[in-house]
Amino acid sequence: MNQEFPSYPPPPGFEEISIWKKTLNSRSFVIGAVLTLLILIGGGTSVFWTPNAIDLLDVSRRLKPTSSEFWFGTDQYGRDIFSMLMVGARTSIIVALIAVGIGMLIGVPLGLLAAAQKGFPEELVMRTNDLIFAFPSLLSAVLITSIFGPGAINAVIAIGIFNIPVFARVARGGALSLSGREFLLAARLSGKSPLLITVEHVLPNIANLLIVQATIQLSLAILSEAGLSYLGLGTQPPMASWGRMLYEAQTMVAFAPQLVLYPGFAIIFSVLGFNLLGDGLRDLLDPKMRRKVA
């Protein structure tokens, strides 16, 4: 008959050559991957090596221009900007990864539970979601900070909490879109328990959705971390963070505007990187979802 059925993406490992070709042809994926990789390498290297130490304040070498010793110059306290950017990358990535990880680990099971158990559990999960949505990560951070004082952990927790409902919604939506599928009925006819069906059928089929959402949330988390550190609610000195660098550079903007540019570009590049990576992955993994944005 004339009915049209949705096409499914080929399973992983299938049509390998064409996937590689497609991957390299996807402009957003390539640019996103390169930017992300640069940030990852920068942050990763900073664990054991930076061009200069960043916790050494030396006013005698303040506001130095670009040189072979200080690649991007120094700030008003004489710290090497390039080294601080590298450490800032590490901070951003660690905070973002842990926060998004928290969101996924708690949010996805909750979302799947809400999709599987109609009635009270679903209602409870969805209402809790609504509640958390009413607390932007900044407000949660404000609450936590006013009790426990500022710190990077606060940022992680506050951003993580806000990620829970996001992943719960995506997981629930994905699971619900599968719920009418006959292969789930077939699995039940095979005597499989709801948990086993979720693990064997539902989770692999919504994995694409979750991965794409995770890259978007990573970029949002980097932005939030920068905002919190800018306000002084996140990462504390001597640890470097891009938001903190912007805060310090702001007072100097009339004399040394370049201090504002470097951390700003670092934030933009990393957020852009994760966003493009997400867009590219979405196009590659699921052609049906093309053109949609976060």
Binding site: L246, V253, P257, I267, I268, V271, L272, N275
Partner: peptide, 18 residues
């Protein structure tokens, strides 16, 4: 717009002030 999404508003603000 792709770049616009990635820009933190407080960074734009500092540049606008400048």
């Amino acid at each position: 717009t792709q770049v616009g999404i990635a820009i933190p508003n407080f960074w734009i603000a500092i540049l606008l002030v400048y």
